[in-house]
Design a protein around this nucleic acid. Structure first.
Lengths: 363, 363
DNA sequence: CTCTCCGATGTATGCGCATACATTGCTCAG
DNA sequence: CTGAGCAATGTATGCGCATACATCGGAGAG
């Protein structure tokens, strides 16, 4: 890899000035055809590729948006070695209940949505996971190289987010919290969970229903719990002030909670969980303990990740339009870039309740 | 968003030179504690975030790797509007056969693997889809802003790839083609497809088996077909010179192929497909035409995407270690950056045959 | 008390490009 | 024939940072 050619090299070879070379790329219509041809020939000859850094620096825009999210269950890096050797090709039976936790599709879908909308505006997407101790450093680093940032809530400490937001616009995926000036994209957590809970109460006639929450500082979780409470209130049941248990939105902790529930004694007739991963983890533990779902315990989730569809029984859940979340976030970000004085926006996307086996709807 | 502060602003406020500010971030150990404190205070005060472009330019490295892939089925952007309004929360039954094509998990998994390995080396990942007419421009643009590029084969024309490769290292996910000097990461397509086909031949005793291929210029497809042929040869059947049909690895075209097969008359006893999306598309059409799988036709795929597990029947397939593919690609890329003179590498990752319902293995 | 050495900091420069502004050479109206 | 007007191109500068090198001051050696 010899030293990469620059505009100067191209200009020399084509016998023009660097301004003309630059124009050939940026404002082709301002350059005569003959000159363009000579420049293009030189570009191909030298293998010239414009430096993005230099361009961004000079143009004062990066041409990229950042996407940063926390370290979810299933996308953990870890020092696991990569298997390189040609290994045996194992033929193995793959029964349905042999489901391993897959990567978090929630993130994947948001990423795809983000990319799509960024593409529509000619921008690249730079992603990073604020993982491990250096999470804040990663976030900061990313912020420096993009024109705006999309992030999930709770990815980094509020203080850091505020710091970054002084430099570039930030759109947070999740609902706003008091006194927060960012743009937000969220899904209709309250209505979704209320509908879900109402379904369990009304259609399945359950009264003994408990809520398994997520992190106490999650706005999403907060809203879902509110929806749960509203549904109980609507049928005259006094709702609890707090979730029965709290997980952290991971399947692994869900399993722990499941075991705890089994050990604790009589199970509620229905467990309404604040997200799918938690529900799946609990399902793992319930089945392992011989508890039948939905016959003994009705179980519901929230998110609509693919894994919720591959479990047996499949999890009744509330699907978020994950890809649309990413798209809406980028859309808002670009609007904000266009008009920095715009009032803080909050967009709420609709959700869908998916009735499947784990609540007893499908055989 | 007022003008972003720079090193100069920070230096002024802290009463030091810009070199010292820079050192506080790059080489903290060379700066006295007292000075560091003053600089950090100024940074917080001003809301300073170092410019990635300027840093990359000065340091002659971007600190990011690029990931570029072609426009697969299901991640198409399109001008589809985003629904913003609060909509009704629909509660709907979600029977298993109501499966919509989901985003291409293959890509998602590669992305996650890429991010993980990049993270381990303190690098960001910039992604872009070479989608639409401006695909080459997007690719070129991405190449300018990263230290190295991971790409799937057939993402951009060979000529462009060669051009880029003169500037930064390129790792191609897929097997090498003759005369190609890039590093490659591939999976064991030949052995995988041979094992898959042999399973159909031996365990299910089928002799009338046909191969449904992918794009003729896909190295992966080529290798899979070779594996298929090898399996036939091994049992004394004269293999065809060409696939019975070719798709383009998308589910939508798979459906078209499926319809064509149904219309064409007697179906082969088994259809071995070059990828899952094609198999899923064919499955859609077969079921729609009343053909039973696997009773009438045995169907197999390749890739092991999640969607292959959510169909009914689930698709017997060969799972590629997709996340590992991304990790290995980045790993190779970074090795190459460390030693540009290294010989071109080709790494082949092992695959696993997953036996499920569509070949008749699981009830 | 002077010289050396080293840690801490400052000065000056260049990374590769975009772009405002200057310049050149025409064309065409007057 | 001349000057205005315009298209095409060149010149010069700055974007914000990293870093080689210079400088400074104090500690310890001689």
């Amino acid at each position: 890899m010899p030293k990469a050619p620059t505009v100067y090299d191209v200009a020399d070879l084509a016998g023009v000035s660097i301004a003309t070379v630059s124009r050939v790329f940026r404002k082709p219509h301002e350059v005569s055809q003959a000159t363009k041809d000579r420049v293009h020939a030189a570009v191909l000859d030298l293998g010239y590729v414009p430096s993005g850094s230099a361009r961004s620096l000079a143009a004062r825009r990066a041409g990229a948006i950042g996407l940063c999210f926390p370290d979810f269950d299933g996308i953990d890096g870890g020092p696991a070695p990569i298997a390189y050797a040609d290994g045996p090709v194992l033929a193995q039976l793959d029964p349905p209940d042999d489901v391993e936790p897959t990567g978090d599709l929630y993130i994947s879908e948001v990423m795809l949505g983000t990319e799509i909308e960024a593409w529509r505006h000619g921008m690249a997407v730079t992603i990073a996971v604020a993982r491990g101790e250096r999470g804040s450093e990663i976030f900061d680093n990313l912020a420096g190289r993009v024109d705006g940032m999309v992030t999930l809530s709770r990815t980094v400490p509020d203080r850091l987010l505020a710091h970054i937001a002084r430099r570039i616009p930030v759109v947070v995926i999740a609902g706003p919290r008091a006194g927060d000036e960012y743009d937000h994209i969220s899904t209709d957590n309250v209505a979704g969970m209320q509908a879900m809970t109402t379904h369990v109460l009304d259609v399945h006639g359950v009264r003994d229903v408990a809520f398994v929450g997520g992190p106490a500082d999650s706005p999403d979780d907060h809203d879902r719990f509110e929806g749960f409470r509203a549904a109980l209130l609507a049928v005259g049941i006094e709702p609890p002030a707090e979730p029965l248990l709290r997980g952290d939105f991971t399947r692994s902790l869900g399993r722990v909670l499941g075991r705890r529930l089994v050990d604790a004694g009589p199970l509620p007739r229905a467990l309404v969980c604040s997200n799918d991963q938690t529900a799946l983890g609990i399902l793992d533990s319930l089945l392992a303990a011989g508890v039948r779902v939905p016959e003994d315990v009705i179980l519901t989730g929230f998110d609509g990740i693919d894994a919720s569809e591959m479990s047996r029984p499949r999890i009744t859940t509330v699907r978020q339009p994950m890809r649309e979340l990413g798209r809406a976030a980028v859309d808002t970000l670009l609007r904000r870039l266009g008009d920095p004085r715009m009032l803080p926006q909050t967009r709420t996307l609709p959700v869908t309740v998916l009735l499947r086996e784990s609540c007893g709807c499908l055989a």
